[in-house]
């Protein structure tokens, strides 16, 4: 660790010397990002532009598919990476990434939760209390209300399955899904189908199911992206159904600009960059100096004790769990 930091420091100094000597050709650091990371026009991109202005280091964004695709690509190119920095490996892919030794170093950059969302109006209309826990979801009053994503194909679907594994343990999670199936859970392939075609709560959604697996930050998104602006969220979050997703940024092993990459990662962790995360990516910053926007404090839930599964266990059992899940729920 110490050697690496020393190395980084010396690289930093040498590159800044180079940078001083050659002002016309600023170094470009390439950052690999997942598909949903904005490449232009958002406050996040403005922050990166400011970084370039101050440090003289240009940041090129390369979009590399969804998070899983990005990790697969990085695994295949380990040691000869496509870029210098990678943004957005989450804890479900972390072990796969570190086992393949794609990173020089990593740091957590943000977090968020995958939780059951509910349609506030529907529950008010039917005079039923919205569910709070995973146990609630298998109760008869919530029969035929929930739509989830296939954990073999969708990242929120996987996160929700992991929440049940964390909650009920290796021995009982399968029974939980048998019960959930008995209680009429519907499974679809992707988040957008679940949220917009089957869920009833989102503005403009076409479905008739008032419960959906989505994000803890979906309610503030409903408020922010409403037109005309609205003051209340149409959806709420079932606080004890959440799985914690952590995202990491890492310096890729074998990249050309390790020193500049270190500088960029430091910036990614700074208040200036982190404060743009909530309203752009709808995740929480790890930098505690950031003051959260009002819509987040009002409508999102940061669960006090979210479910989580060790990255090593996820990497070791992902396929086996998905296959078991498929047998229980779909066959």
């Amino acid at each position: 660790m110490n050697t690496r930091m020393l190395l980084a420091a010396s690289l930093l100094m040498s590159t800044s010397l180079v940078a001083c000597g050659d002002d016309d050709a600023p170094t470009t650091v390439t950052m690999l990002v997942y598909d949903s990371f904005p490449t232009t026009g958002t406050p996040l991109n403005d922050a990166l532009a400011e970084f370039t202005k101050e440090s003289g280091i240009k940041v090129q964004l390369l979009t590399a598919g969804d998070a899983g695709t990005m990790v697969t690509k990085a695994t295949l190119t380990a040691g000869n990476p496509e870029g210098d920095v990678m943004w957005g490996v989450d804890n479900t892919f972390l072990s796969a990434a570190t086992d393949a030794e794609i990173f020089e170093s990593i740091a957590q950059v943000d977090y968020g939760d995958v939780c059951v969302n509910y349609d506030i109006a529907w529950f008010a209309e039917h005079d039923i209390a919205p569910p709070i826990t995973l146990d609630d979801l298998i109760a008869p009053e919530y029969a035929d209300l929930l739509v989830v994503e296939n954990p073999a194909a969708s990242s929120p679907g996987l996160a929700f399955m992991l929440a049940t594994i964390a909650r009920y343990g290796e021995n009982e999670w399968e029974q939980y899904w048998t019960d959930l199936r008995g209680n009429g859970v519907e499974v679809v392939e992707s988040w957008d189908i679940a949220y917009y075609e089957r869920f009833s709560g989102a503005a403009g959604s076409a479905g008739d199911r008032p419960l959906v697996v989505s994000y803890g930050s979906s309610p503030p998104a409903e408020v922010v992206f409403a037109d005309p602006p609205r003051t209340d969220a149409p959806t709420g979050v079932s606080a004890e159904t959440c799985f914690r997703q952590q995202e990491y940024a890492g310096i890729l092993r074998g990249g050309d600009h390790t020193g500049e990459a270190e500088q960029l990662v430091r910036f990614l962790l700074s208040e200036r960059f982190q404060r743009e995360l909530p309203l752009t990516l709808f995740v929480y910053p790890v930098n505690e100096a950031v003051v959260l926007p009002d819509v987040f404090t009002q409508f999102a839930i940061i669960p006090s004790d979210p479910f989580t599964v060790e990255p090593d266990a996820i990497a070791a059992h992902r396929e086996e769990w998905q296959d078991r899940w498929t047998e229980i729920v779909l066959r």
Binding site: D35, S36, W191, D192, Y195, Y196, A202, A203, G204, S214, Y215, S218, A221, E222, V224, F225, A226, D227, F282
Partner: peptide, 14 residues
């Protein structure tokens, strides 16, 4: 289009 349809909120979707 896929990016806009893949997030919550009525405006991005429309």
């Amino acid at each position: 289009i896929a990016r806009l349809l893949g997030r919550a909120g009525e405006l991005p979707r429309a």
